[in-house]
Design a protein around this nucleic acid. Structure first.
Lengths: 129, 129
DNA sequence: CAGGATCCCATAAGATACTG
DNA sequence: CAGTATCTTATGGGATCCTG
């Protein structure tokens, strides 16, 4: 799996995080990757707890870095569609890895809690709400 | 590659980033993954431009989350060795993905620069310094 | 050597209200 | 609908110096 990759120099990791680090960018890209093109409002609801200000800000940066496209439609009121680019898609491996680890981690935590406090844990939050 | 994974709910990505997000944690884990156990000073040099204060801070959080171990040796002066745990190792997929994307991205950027400004680009910075 | 103490700052991120 | 404008806050991150 690791093939011939040698990560003795961690600089590339730093580079990646500079582009798509932070709390929201990966989540936004994952959403566009899974659901296809979305309008601003749809995206906001899909991502969850993000304010328009922050969403707008993140989208601009992602667009600057060619990760997403922004298309304006002259309807009334106007609509705007965001979509992931081919280049953005190259992050799929990263995004899926982050996602899968998060899922497994949740299960791990749940089992720990279940072992420590048998009554709680299950009712705390459903596996995938 | 994506298998049966469905990331319509991006929450797990958020979870992962809460644990190992930020500028340094992934880099630290990658370093320990590649080079094995390291002492504080070695780690600082390996990671690069991190101050002791921040490194200490990050290490504590990683230890709290069972990602790394901390072993104190009663030499004089004392030495401390940090190592990645089995659980930390489960992040290898994520770390390698981040790393590989960073490497590819660098090459992409380089080629762009080379195309736009033929003279520059190459001399700007060596591929992997 | 492995950090802690202190002070400091830039910026990520959020709340709220408003507009073409 | 798709954002902007303002204001505010939290904190991630850093510089510098110090110590067991």
């Amino acid at each position: 799996m690791t093939r011939n990759v040698c990560l003795r120099n961690p600089q590339p990791i730093h580079d990646t995080l500079e582009l798509v680090g932070g709390k929201w960018k990966m989540v936004i890209l994952a959403t566009l990757l899974e659901r296809g093109d979305l309008r601003f409002g749809e995206l906001q609801r899909a991502v969850g707890d993000i304010t328009p200000r922050i969403l707008s800000h993140e989208l601009k940066q992602l667009e600057e870095n060619k990760m997403i496209t922004r298309r304006v439609y002259d309807t009334s009121p106007i609509t705007v569609e965001y979509g992931i680019t081919a280049y953005g898609r190259t992050l799929e491996t990263v995004i899926v890895a982050l996602f899968e680890w998060g899922v497994t981690h949740r299960q791990t935590i749940m089992h720990e809690n279940a072992a420590e406090t048998p009554e709680a844990g299950v009712k705390a939050s459903s596996p995938f709400d």
